[in-house]
Design a protein around this nucleic acid. Structure first.
Lengths: 223, 223
DNA sequence: TAGATTGTTAATCGATTAACAATC
DNA sequence: TAGATTGTTAATCGATTAACAATC
């Protein structure tokens, strides 16, 4: 991979893992690490790590390795953690509420501005300090506050409509937790989906591989 | 990819997407589909789809394409949806509760048996009809009921301990929602992690690419 | 039958790994 | 200095795409 060439999604998907592992190393007080040691702890080759970093610049020192602190900072910079990104939540059902209450938006570089819902029982309240507005106010809010990302935790029936409204209002990205495959026309808006069911089905496949096939016990009779 | 050769993770990750798209097509009443049309709707090439399916067998008819119903069934079979997999939930905080209440376990081939917690306020209650037991009872429960997968929605501090207990008790897979990178010794136990922060950081990277760099507006002054 | 589309092999492309000079 | 480890190019490996005979 030549530097400045288009970075592959494989590399992009590893960047947050690097960031997470480096944060962990930092917490344990480790000051420096070699590509070899980092690779071993992450299940990657040293070569791959150096190749990945090579896409973005030079972050190490020959004969020494990488300073944990500064490599973490650099990767955070690449990921856009210091860009002041903002986020709003669409849908404060169980999942939306759970993520608002538990997820560390700020340590991932996002400022959670507000949530939106249509349920009169929650509109006007706060969830973990985050104000909940009526969905009717969405466009006005975005016009008044720059919003980088809209997080979708609405019922699947409302997903595409709310997505369209977010895109039209000018958000840069959609963080989609619904099971709907969102259709986006604009080239400059990115969708990132968290599909729980894809994840569980992949796990289902993997554990099924080491099991006797369903109904295999009857094979004996057939022989 | 030769048939019966080891199936790559890239293929495994696409299988649930096929399943999801075929379910969607089925819902819209579509009876047959060609690899070409399916590819177009999923953003894949027809070649890739046929190559993927070739790993597992022959599911289409020359000159006709694939029957949506039966291809969905076949892929479900490959994913292990009909194997009677079972699941328990560890940790009934916001996230655990949200997933218990919202996620369609049964349509993904899993039977949700029970949840476990240590909070006296929830132990002994039910969540969406699922009984909540004390974590102390975990091993006894698994000994009495075959459990395929343990879902981890515990606080990060408890993640590794509960993971170890699940593995020792004999589960086949861990569905990990904590931010902890679980260490597993046994070769025959699979971990599948849903890392919200990896997902959001990847999105952060993608939206940052099309923005002026942070502080770019000062460059003018430097020239 | 003719047209369409699969199953499957071969070709291409891209990602990972290996190698090593540069250098701390 | 000698040893270690990076940055970077080259080699290898694997995944995707192309091609086409088989056949519905």
């Amino acid at each position: 991979m030549k530097r400045n060439a288009k970075v592959s999604t494989a590399v992009i998907r590893r960047l947050p893992r690097y960031y997470r592992h480096l944060s962990e190393l930092q917490r344990t007080g480790m000051v420096r690490i070699s590509s070899n040691a980092l690779g071993k702890s992450m299940g990657l080759t040293a070569s791959q790590i150096r190749q990945d970093l090579f896409c973005f610049g030079e972050f190490g020192q020959q004969g020494y390795g990488y300073k944990v602190d500064s490599l973490k900072e650099e990767i955070g910079e690449i990921l856009g953690i210091n860009r002041g990104h903002t986020l709003i939540v669409l849908g404060t059902g169980n999942l939306g509420r759970a993520i608002i209450q538990n997820f560390q938006f700020s340590s991932n570089g996002f400022h959670l501005l507000a949530a939106f819902d249509i349920n009169p029982g929650v509109v006007g309240t706060q969830i973990a300090g985050v104000p909940v507005y009526h969905a009717d106010e969405l466009e006005d809010f975005i016009a008044a506050h720059p919003v980088s990302v809209g997080m979708l935790t609405v019922p699947i029936m409302a997903a595409q409509t709310m997505c369209d409204r977010l895109v039209n209002a000018g958000v840069r990205g959609i963080w989609n937790f619904t099971n709907h495959e969102l259709a986006i026309r604009r080239e400059d808006v990115v969708v990132e989906s968290v599909h729980f069911s894809d994840s569980l089905l992949a796990l289902s496949y993997m554990i099924s591989q080491r099991e006797p096939a369903a109904g295999a016990e009857t094979e004996e009779e057939l022989e």
